[in-house]
Design a protein around this nucleic acid. Structure first.
Lengths: 348, 348
DNA sequence: GTGAAAGCGCTAACAT
DNA sequence: ATGTTAGCGCTTTCAC
């Protein structure tokens, strides 16, 4: 027992050729006599042979693996991203090593070092914070990488993100078109540039419409707290006619809080969420939401990365994908549109 | 540019020692003079050195990576499982390579071969089907593996799953205790042993209570169809007083269907879902659900696998974890309990 | 078109 | 306790 897996040498012997030829056949590297090639393939099949990727990578210097580092594997947005990347990568013959930074810069640095020790062809990273602790270490490792979703400041790397400002503006215009002058923005944390961009988009849009900017409530990442904080805020400040929740946890927290306060959606308060999930369709009322183009973000990230892996030298690209506003039952008109003519209510 | 990463030799030279000593220091392998050890660690830090895992693994024959293969990365149950495994594995110094079989046996076989080509220390697998296409290929690769969630027939491998029969029985007892004699069971597919076990648990419990067995509706994996099929069934068969949905997609589909039919939950129909997600708490009504112990499944899978990696030779273990019934608002009493005294309504 | 031989970066025997 | 050496399985010159 504990029989070792067959090596290329085993295949070579069985096929009556040299290891080099086996390598050439299996790696489609050099033209090989069809007869020999067939013998090789047959021998490989017989022995159930699979190239040892560690050895292959060590010798060739080329790795067919990329690392993917996200802040959390509990968040469906990140796992959806991983799903997309896995698919795209797999189609190009790459495997993915997945790691979570658990929203911690320290862990992020450690996990990144671990990923780099595989000498991967590239890395896809959703930073834990705007500071992106790993920038330096990865920088001088010479491994190409793409920063996704939480893009801030200027990275040397390619970036892929949603157009957060426009997305938020779209949500804001939708509310304004329904006559909402008083909105509450519920954010996870303002430490993240993408969340700040969403706030900015909303505030700008309200200002441009000549309406007072909405207040922004920062409630942290944990679902439990959200409800309480929102309840307290409303107790202190009076109720808004509408709420924009900037993340999925915020959305759920707001729903819970409004229910506890006995505020009906959309009759008393209109609600827009960020991130679109299936449950928002079956919820009653169904939830109007800004759908992030997760799938496109994944493919964009992969295509940027594969270009770099292929040796592309062009300056870093910054992809900003548009999003879509899914209008459902949680938003309701309470008066005439507050939008001027030339600002459309919604753009897809 | 494209400077190569430092090697152990570079570190050795800088620290003025031999590569072997560097290896011993960094790998905590053999006792080394503290002074030299410090010099080595310093040099490694200076150069930003990280051992090359491919080379290390090639030489030592020990890999610090495990493959994880799931049917889908879109399903939150599987991604939660991955989150748990990533955490446990990471704590033991292992990385995970993640792959999806996209619910296809053919893809499963291919992805498994790819995973095995890393010569991983082990594999965690949630099979695409009960047939588990990869059983043979992995079997003679000698790599230890654990089968999780979709456990069927007798595998030679360790298995970890929820006690599906008992879980379903618990849900059934809850309904019976509320006086429901007519239940509809909505299953994704009866091709999966774990789904069949859930059906069995429900039917047995009803039979034991002297109540007619509920009918089982099989609706496939896609969310879209679920609603229609359920609507049609109810149109044809009349409405049940209660529904048990055996997967999360089934749950959402049922909610949508009942709403379209104008059947109020829980006033007209009571509903129990399988898998517990946050949205079920904020949904109105909140959804009574069987919570799977995903986290424990992940840790159980990891501990079984690490034992095998460590060389454990004992016969395969079959772990069956208990689940919990989260009673919320979607289930309501419509009459006296149909349960006999000695059958408790719910067990945690 | 094919094979022989070297060597990727590391670790395990062995020698000191 | 440290260094020397060999070789893991593969790919890549470089001969032929």
């Amino acid at each position: 027992m504990a029989r070792k897996p067959p090596t290329m040498r085993d295949v070579a012997i069985r096929a009556g050729v040299s290891p080099a030829t086996v390598s050439n056949v299996l790696g489609h590297r050099k033209p090989v006599d069809p007869v020999l090639a067939d013998r090789v393939r047959q021998a490989a099949r017989d022995l159930n042979y699979q190239v040892d990727r560690a050895a292959s990578q060590l010798r060739s210097g080329r790795a067919h693996v990329v690392g993917v580092l996200v802040p959390s594997l509990e968040n469906p947005f990140f796992t959806a991203l991983i799903a997309g990347i896995e698919q795209a990568a797999q189609e190009d013959g790459y495997d993915i090593i997945v790691a979570s930074s658990h929203d911690s810069e320290a862990v992020e640095t450690a996990r990144m070092a671990a990923l780099l020790s595989w000498r991967p062809a590239g890395l896809v990273i959703v930073p834990a914070t705007d500071r992106f602790a790993g920038g330096e270490i990865i920088q001088n490792s010479q491994v190409p990488y793409v920063v996704v979703d939480r893009v801030s400041g200027q990275t040397a790397a390619d970036t892929v993100t949603m157009d957060n400002r426009s997305a938020a503006a779209m949500a804001a215009r939708h509310l304004l078109s329904l006559g909402h002058a008083r909105a509450l923005v519920v954010a996870s944390t303002l430490e993240l540039a993408n969340i700040r961009a969403r706030c900015r988009g909303i505030c700008e849009t309200f200002r441009e419409a000549g309406v007072a900017e909405p207040e922004v409530l920062e409630i942290g990442m944990s679902f439990g707290e959200v409800g309480e904080r929102v309840e307290r805020w409303i107790a202190d400040h009076g109720r808004p006619t509408s709420v924009i929740a900037l993340t999925n946890y915020a959305t759920m927290g707001v729903i819970a809080a409004l229910r506890r306060l006995g505020l009906s959606v959309p009759n008393t308060v209109s609600l827009i969420g960020f991130d679109d999930y299936t449950w928002m369709q079956v919820s009653s009322p169904s939830i109007t939401a800004v759908a992030q183009p997760v799938r496109q973000m994944a493919t964009a990230a992969w295509s940027a990365l594969s270009a770099r892996i292929a040796g592309e030298e062009a300056p870093a690209t910054g992809t900003e994908l548009p999003c879509k506003l899914e209008i459902r039952q949680s938003t309701r008109a309470i008066g005439p549109s507050l939008l001027s003519e030339n600002a459309p209510a919604a753009v897809s």
